[in-house]
Design a protein around this nucleic acid. Structure first.
Lengths: 129, 129
DNA sequence: GACATTACTTACATTTTTTATAGTACCACA
DNA sequence: TGTGGTACTATAAAAAATGTAAGTAATGTC
């Protein structure tokens, strides 16, 4: 997205890590700011550009486009353009994209646990004061 | 990590998303370039700063420090300093940190699947040329 | 007193990601 | 001729993340 510099140290590091660690490879794919939420929504079924925009009230059109394009490049979603005016474009998870469901669930449940723990810590801190 | 600007749109967006999506919340915590690999290594047991450095040949000391500090802040790891000279510091996963194991496994297996698919696509493309 | 070792810190530069704003193309319909 | 709706693109700028290079502190050993 925008262009990345393939001669940078950062690029080399990312490549090397992704090559030897599938978990990092995976994280790179779903790692954009909005990528995970987009996938979460798409798990429930295909959505139009405008629908996604409504579901993600704070995203800019540019960001939405960029993230969708990246997901498409990585074969996580497909993009279907209907030859209509005004245009209609639908985004849908591919099979491998849909398999993110398990990953997302896992992330979600870990996140919940962590949040709970954090809340507990906070309230303990309050109590002991 | 360096300082972030709490008045930025980006900050607000991240917060809002993390609040309503535990999966995004989780992704933010383990989302640094090196955070996942560090955790992967620590799953096998505690490690010293220098040992991690050796395991991650391309990381700079600065980056390693930053990522470890962020993980510590988020209670993913603990930092134990031994009052010796030269200094000895050990990093170890906390219980919640250790629970990342399942997440990492899931990411890894999805990553492997995706890689395989990608490789298959590539060889198909080659064949059909 | 100089040196080696370890785990950092600091200042700064570069790269990458995200946001802001203002367009564009298309055609049906009024 | 003009307006409306949809899914974008282009350009610039801000913010965040990462990388580079050069220190620092403490102390046991030579």
């Amino acid at each position: 997205m925008s262009k990345i510099k393939e001669t940078s140290t950062n690029f080399a590091n990312k490549q090397a890590l992704a090559d030897e660690c599938s978990e990092v490879y995976a994280a790179n794919i779903i790692g954009g700011q909005w990528a995970l939420v987009i996938c979460s929504w798409l798990i429930n079924g295909k959505l139009r550009f405008g629908e996604l925009k409504k579901l993600l009230p704070n995203i800019t059109e540019r960001m939405l486009t960029l993230q969708l394009r990246k997901l498409e490049e990585n074969k996580i979603i497909t993009r279907t353009i209907y030859a209509e005016v005004p245009p209609r474009v639908e985004y849908e998870l591919t099979p491998i994209g849909y398999e993110l469901k398990a990953v997302i669930k896992q992330l979600e449940s870990w996140g919940d646990k962590h949040k709970a723990l954090d809340a507990a810590n906070r309230s303990n801190m309050t109590k002991s004061h």
